[in-house]
Design a protein around this nucleic acid. Sequence first.
DNA 1: ATTAGCACTCTCGGGTTGAGAGTGCTAATT
DNA 2: AATTAGCACTCTCAACCCGAGAGTGCTAAT
Lengths: 344, 344
Amino acid sequence: MNELTDRQKIILSLVVHEHTRTAQPVASKTLINGYNLKISSATVRNEMNTLTEQGFLRQPHTSAGRVPTEEGYRFFVGNMVQHTALPSATRNTIAHQFYQSRKGLEYWLPLAASVLANQSQAVSIVTAPHSEKVTFKHLELIATRASQVLMVLVLVGGEIQQQILSLDAIHSQEQLSQIAAQINHICENASLEQIKNLPLTPDPLVNQVIAAVSDQLSIASKLVTGELYLDGLTNVLSEPEFSDYSPINSPLRFLEERPMLDDLIARTVLTEEIGGVQVLIGGENTWRELQNCSVILTRYGVPDQLSGALGILGPMRMPYSQTISTLRYVAELMSGLVSDNLVN
Amino acid sequence: MNELTDRQKIILSLVVHEHTRTAQPVASKTLINGYNLKISSATVRNEMNTLTEQGFLRQPHTSAGRVPTEEGYRFFVGNMVQHTALPSATRNTIAHQFYQSRKGLEYWLPLAASVLANQSQAVSIVTAPHSEKVTFKHLELIATRASQVLMVLVLVGGEIQQQILSLDAIHSQEQLSQIAAQINHICENASLEQIKNLPLTPDPLVNQVIAAVSDQLSIASKLVTGELYLDGLTNVLSEPEFSDYSPINSPLRFLEERPMLDDLIARTVLTEEIGGVQVLIGGENTWRELQNCSVILTRYGVPDQLSGALGILGPMRMPYSQTISTLRYVAELMSGLVSDNLVN
DNA sequence: ATTAGCACTCTCGGGTTGAGAGTGCTAATT
DNA sequence: AATTAGCACTCTCAACCCGAGAGTGCTAAT
């Protein structure tokens, strides 16, 4: 594939720009009118023709304007989106919302989702941060009714797991606390493997609890993404391209199928270092539900310790530059918050 | 308002039934064909006429069949839905899914949402159980970096709250554990009021932690509904009445506005005893977003201790009898699970 | 290489039409 | 007095046509 001339690049980017604005096919004339180019519409038409032949533009029908193809968007995003900074007013608005929120991940996560959805007028995707390698931090056993015990397990990073254990006999809270202390001593900062390979202790009760801990850690280690927060679902539905709603290939279907979404996040974000941004255009021939959509994903958190994903799903014709900047900024904020509150 | 004759009731219920099936206006002829009535279509037309005058039926246009009005549905649900049991096959399917799920509320809640959405082919609404009066159960302090401490607070009922505290100085885990033990002793089974009114202790650190506990409890006590789980969003969008999607009064908009949804749940479910089922038809002139929808809500859990809401939001023409039975059954199951795992 | 000019194509909205569905009414029937 | 057959009437809906308008591709001139 030969390169594009500068003029072709300009025209491509103008078509993209105009089409994201209007959602309509772009005519040669509207370009020279709206952007006072120094060339005639006929020339633009010629260039558009070659762009169409190269697969970057597409005509909905013989005598309509041009629309960018997936390829076209891909080229645009790959070669022509310059890294612009977010206007400081927007930055302040966003920062302010975090500032006056309650403190704690459980508040920041939905807030991030809401901010992203509002700013981008698209669907936002936020996963709770999760650490790749799970490590024991602290254990607590709490007596409840009869022989049932609530086990609370804190991982390095700050994730908390809970489970109800049924013991063979009734134990007092003092006894339980003592067992917990013992296990905390044994398991301090131990990895899943280390705990799995611990020798049995003389006390069968301790063994039972350690087995439960090991189970919980094992579950946690299999998790790719933490809890999921979505927001702005209605935004995307009000877009004209989804007005003839067909449930078959609706982005909403995609979002409700957790396995698909997990797969997407696992395949893209988690292979990326923090700070990088991935753009998926039109489902990349893999996800049919995302035909007219693009997904922008990034990772936030503390490298190697605790990280999650932030993303935006919107129509393919979205203001990429702006959306990417927004995502970057929110990721930065969230990374700061996570690292300030790291439990290790 | 005078009463309906038996025949009018039958016709109303047939219209409702047929319309839920087809989503089309129901003609007099289709009724006598489909349900082999012993009367003629003309008689049916006459009855339909009076039902229309009474406000139970409606004609989309002069010469179309009839459609039930909100009033019609309300009468139908109030007077004519008999309490049928769920087919045992369905019960088994549902029970089986819970049986082979992982144990723990964090798995049961999304599972309940998924089961309800699938069974009803509508949107399901599930809130985590929450207790009306918050009571201290157990506290744990865990050293992290520098002077930051992770506070884990367990409430009676089993809810867990976490918060990062910044202390004035660095303390060892032993010191922290000792402080926690002290506070556990002071606060055992204390209510929010009791903790608020505790006298200050000589140790300022203990006072700081107790203040934080009091804060957390106070936040928890203001919560009406716990975490929210939704599923089946796409189901409702595939319904024909929402095919001309208008974002203004879409049920999705309603679901995304947490305050509205909380309000709805607070106003209806929480005033209901466990086991009761509430049916809201057409937004009841309060929620405009729910114009063509009905919401069925119930409560599950352990009375006075830990309860949450289960609900289904679907088009107004939904199979009420079946949906109500399903909801009841899932609520029963969930109540059992919650009560088996109660922390008190 | 660019552009003016023009013929050509395709969409889109509006108007028309005819078939079909379903009603309401009236007069006959039970 | 209640029911029903029969029929005229109304309204929707899909199909079709048509003309205006938009936008292109091509050709010939610059």
